[in-house]
Amino acid sequence: MPQEPEVILVVDDDPDILRVVEVNLRLHGYQVLLAKSGGEALAMLEVQRPHLALVDLMMPGMDGLELTRRLRADPMVTALPIIMLTAKALVSDKVAGLAAGADDYIVKPFDTSELLARVRATLRRNQEAREVSPLTGLPGNTRIQREIADRLRARSEFAVCYVDIDRFKSVNDAYGFARGDQFIGALARSLRRATIAAGLPPAFLGHIGGDDFVVVCSPDQLRPVTEKAVGDFEIAADELYDPIDAGRGYLELYDRQGRLHQVNIVTLSIGVALSSSRGYQHPSEVSEVASEMKAVAKKHPGNWVSVDQRSKHLGLPAQRTAGQETASPQELGP
Rank of each mutant, 00 (worst) to 15 (best):
S133G: 14
E22Q: 12
L18V: 10
V77P: 03
T195K: 00
L115F: 09
D255Y: 03
M1S: 15
Q3V: 15
G101M: 08
F158I: 03
I235V: 15
R151S: 12
M293P: 06
Q221G: 07
E22C: 04
R19T: 13
D14N: 15
A159D: 09
A43V: 11
R118Q: 07
L332F: 11
A188L: 11
S275T: 11
L187R: 11
I82F: 06
A237T: 09
E325C: 04
R26D: 03
R70W: 05
F233L: 12
P81M: 06
V225G: 03
Y280K: 02
Y175T: 01
K312W: 07
A159Q: 08
L18F: 09
S284H: 12
S306C: 14
A194D: 06
G185R: 14
V163Y: 03
L115V: 12
Q182R: 14
F183K: 02
V20C: 08
V20L: 15
I17H: 04
I165A: 00
Y175I: 01
A79V: 07
V95R: 02
Y250S: 00
R130A: 12
A53C: 14
V215H: 03
L253A: 00
R256P: 06
L187D: 04
P224E: 12
D238M: 02
S133W: 12
L253V: 07
V296I: 14
R310V: 11
R146F: 10
S113F: 13
Y175R: 02
A198H: 00
D255R: 05
V132H: 15
A159W: 05
R49E: 13
K298D: 05
Q127F: 02
L316G: 00
A100L: 02
R310Y: 09
L240V: 08
S306M: 00
D212Q: 14
N264G: 13
M76V: 15
E285W: 05
S291P: 03
M58L: 14
I196P: 00
K294R: 13
